[in-house]
Computed example of a mutant assay.
Amino acid sequence: MAYSLKGGRVYSVPDGRYVTRDLYISEGIISEVPAKDAIEIDVSGKFVYPGFVDSHAHLIGTGRKELEVDLENCDSVEKLETALNVERDIVRARGWDQEVLGFMPVRKILDSIISRPVIITRRCGHIASANSAFIKLFSLERLHGLDGTDIDLGILKERALDEVERNVLLTSGEVEAAIEAGTKAFLKYGVTSVHSDDYHGIEYELLMQRLAGIVDLRVYEKFCVSREEDLEMILLGRQFENEFFQLNAAKLYLDGSLGARTAAM
Rank of each mutant, 00 (worst) to 15 (best):
A2S: 15
A2D: 13
A2R: 08
A2E: 12
A2Y: 08
Y3F: 15
Y3S: 04
Y3L: 05
L5E: 00
L5D: 00
K6F: 07
K6G: 05
K6D: 10
K6Y: 10
G7D: 01
G7N: 07
G8Q: 00
G8A: 00
R9F: 06
V10Y: 01
V10T: 02
Y11C: 03
S12V: 07
S12H: 05
V13F: 14
P14T: 07
P14Y: 09
P14N: 05
D15E: 14
D15M: 15
D15Y: 06
D15P: 01
G16R: 00
G16N: 08
R17I: 09
Y18C: 11
T20L: 08
T20C: 09
T20R: 12
T20I: 14
R21C: 11
D22W: 05
L23G: 04
L23E: 05
Y24M: 13
I25N: 03
I25Y: 04
S26M: 14
E27D: 14
E27V: 08
G28A: 03
I30R: 11
S31C: 15
S31T: 15
E32S: 15
E32D: 15
E32P: 02
E32A: 13
V33N: 14
V33E: 15
V33G: 11
P34I: 05
A35T: 06
A35C: 12
K36R: 11
K36M: 13
D37W: 10
A38N: 05
E40R: 10
I41N: 03
I41T: 02
I41Y: 02
D42E: 04
D42P: 00
V43A: 00
V43F: 05
S44M: 04
S44N: 12
S44R: 11
G45I: 02
K46S: 12
K46L: 10
K46V: 01
F47G: 07
F47P: 04
F47L: 10
V48Q: 01
Y49P: 02
Y49F: 15
Y49G: 04
P50G: 09
P50W: 07
P50S: 13
G51W: 06
G51F: 08
F52N: 11
F52L: 15
V53D: 04
D54M: 03
D54G: 02
S55Q: 10
H56K: 09
A57C: 11
A57M: 12
A57Q: 06
A57Y: 04
A57T: 04
A57E: 07
A57K: 01
